[in-house]
Design a protein around this nucleic acid. Structure first.
Length: 228
DNA sequence: ACTGTTACCGTCTTTGACTT
DNA sequence: AAGTCAAAGACGGTAACAGT
């Protein structure tokens, strides 16, 4: 029975492979891998001499996946909720496209709130915390932004806004992460739009162990993760 | 006109007690 | 153990008002 070494990267890859077998979904697997790594970390802290066999590791992953499914209440909630990597089913694509246009018409703060809550499924509380606002302000700003979004959708976004004006020069992942770190709505907006222009999408954004974790996807389909 | 805050309301989820 | 149900809490939305 092969023992798992302390090489975190190797361990992560192994768990990811198990997760892919269980979930058949890359994003779910990344989530599951994070969960399992956390469980393994806790297990090791509780018992440093614990033997983490492959079978045991697989069991942990499987149980974690079952827990996830339970919480998600599969009967009432589609599996791809909040995820945008399901081929052919991109329910949030229109929101994303509208959002990118909207970003040129709304204040940065409102756009970022819409981005966080309607695209990345942040709660009002989380968005408020990130932007140093009250929950009420976030909710109202969101409502107003949504109204504007609907209005623009109704009018067919008739004038495709010129996206050249004001485009910043240095727009990369670090800029976006830094913008989030500094809680600067304008910078977040700029960086996000810059990436969108390069056809690089932030396909997922979530808190993992208290840190913001960004999942990017480039035009070639390459996916990578950046943690703030 | 725009933005932030507060109060209030409706909906959904969670939790605990109770019954089968 | 499993199912049911009511209470409590969390959450999102809206209206009204105030400040800039």
């Amino acid at each position: 029975m092969p023992q798992l070494g302390l090489d975190l990267q190797a361990l992560k890859q192994r768990i990811y492979r198990y997760s892919m077998q269980i979930t058949s979904d890359s994003w779910e697997s990344e989530d599951l891998t994070q969960d399992v790594l956390l469980k393994v970390h806790n297990l090791r802290q509780a018992n440093p001499s614990i033997e983490l066999s492959n079978a045991y590791l697989y069991k942990i992953a499987l149980n974690a996946w079952k827990d996830k499914l339970k919480k998600r209440k599969l009967s009432s909630e589609p599996l791809d909720d909040g995820h945008m990597n399901v081929p052919g089913i991109d329910t949030q694509l229109s929101t994303r496209e509208l959002l990118e246009d909207l970003a040129y018409r709304l204040p940065a703060r409102s756009t970022v709130i819409l981005l966080l809550m309607d695209v990345f499924d942040f709660t009002a509380k989380e968005a408020a915390e990130l932007l140093s606002l009250t929950e009420g302000s976030v909710q109202v700003a969101l409502g107003r932004a949504r109204q504007k979004l609907k209005k623009l959708a109704r009018t067919g976004m008739e004038s495709s806004v010129s996206k050249q004006a004001g485009d910043p020069a240095q727009l990369d992942f670090e800029a976006l992460v830094e913008a989030f770190r500094l809680r600067d709505p304008k910078a977040i907006c700029r960086s996000y739009l810059g990436l969108a222009k390069r056809q690089i999408t932030v396909s997922k954004l979530k808190y993992i162990n208290g840190k913001l974790t960004f999942y990017f996807e480039d035009p070639d389909g390459n996916r990578f993760m950046v943690t703030s």
